[in-house]
Write a protein that binds this DNA or RNA. Structure first.
Lengths: 205, 205
DNA sequence: ATATTTGTTAACCATTTGGTTAAACAATAT
DNA sequence: ATATTGTTTAACCAAATGGTTAACAAATAT
């Protein structure tokens, strides 16, 4: 195969390598040389496509955050009834993250290092997470008496916890219980149905 | 105050500084100079007390993990009935972590970088987390018919998710909802009772 | 008092790391 | 064919970083 024939553009090769390295090692632990090696190219070429480490990192981080947050928001804002929303959220979110199981810990961890900076960087207005409508919807159901008197915020936290946390604790669970990739996958597939059932059983009158 | 009169021993001053820096920046992001500065001493003195960065980090990491894991295990193993166990776990765990809210993300994130290494480092036999008894206990209750037919593993995951995740998402929640330290604290205090109620409502027949 | 051990520092060193440069190489335009 | 533009590399550089050294100061033993 000729040296300069490439199915993936070089830029995408770098992105792919950077994704892998940044996600595994974080912004500080990642080395530009690692990224170049992973992409099978010269380090200077990484700088040719992306000005510097910070810029490349931001690209990767924004991409990752962009996979996680808008989806939450879309469901928060939609017009469906509460229970359907909960079901849909679990279904969709677990599907997305199963395809990139490392995303939540990566994003949460990096955000933790400088929440204010990332918060501004991420949501310059548009796709900022806005759970207001979802919270109001819960309150309405409480008022209607269809569900128990429940703090909307607590319920929101429960939904997010049950859905996202397993991905964050994944390595520990896998080591502790000796389960492999496939078993974890099946466990999470099961959870798509289990979580809504669990929540609804807990809150419905 | 004389130069060599110290209320805290130097070693503890270093540990304290290292805790702060490592937890904020992680193993790779932390700089020995930062730690020395934070402790108000010369960098060489850090090396005098702790051979190198790796050793110091392990000290801090083991200490952090030691605050989180044995407590889980103690409750898993104890003889109490299931519902009491769940209540006790939430109560105790949230109390511990409220005193060090940064611990879960720190430990989970570092473990993620090399799960096998940390797993061996941490649990050379004794305090290895062992949820077996807890899982059996759930199965017993299912068999007795006191709770719904529920996968023990799913229930365990639910308990851990609901308890631990809020601390991991803390910065995002605080920014998104504009809540301060005190409000978060109160929210988690409320959760000590809310989580067991939530779980028990969901699983009891 | 004095020798010895322990604690602390400033200066230094080797290596790593992000980033640059200049030249070679390929593709494209003329 | 040749000039021009865009892509890639090897070699290099300055700054940062983990770690060491040698000397000095304090505490302790003799």
């Amino acid at each position: 195969m000729s040296k300069y024939k490439k199915d993936k553009t070089t830029e995408e090769k770098i992105m792919e390598a950077a994704r892998k390295v940044f996600v595994r090692k974080g912004m500080y632990g990642a080395r530009m040389q690692d990224i170049a090696d992973e992409a099978g190219i010269n380090k200077a070429l990484v700088h040719y496509y992306f000005k510097n480490k910070q810029k490349l990192f931001e690209e990767i981080f924004m991409e990752a955050a962009g996979k996680l947050f808008p989806r939450v928001n879309a469901i928060f804002i939609s017009e469906e009834p509460l229970f359907a929303k909960i079901e849909k959220f679990c279904e969709e979110y677990i599907s997305v993250v199963l395809a990139n199981p490392y995303l939540p810990l990566f994003v949460l961890n990096e955000m933790n290092q400088d929440p204010v900076y990332f918060f501004n960087k991420l949501w310059s207005g548009k796709q900022r997470p806005n759970p207001q409508k979802f919270l109001e919807q819960i309150q309405e159901e409480v008022n209607k008496g269809t569900i128990k008197n429940f703090s909307p915020l607590q319920l929101l936290m429960n939904l997010l916890s049950l859905t996202i946390f397993p991905f964050i604790g994944k390595p520990i669970f896998q080591m502790t219980l000796g389960i492999d990739e496939l078993q974890f996958r099946m466990f999470m597939e099961q959870r798509k149905k289990e979580i809504p059932k669990f929540i609804i059983d807990a809150i419905k009158k």
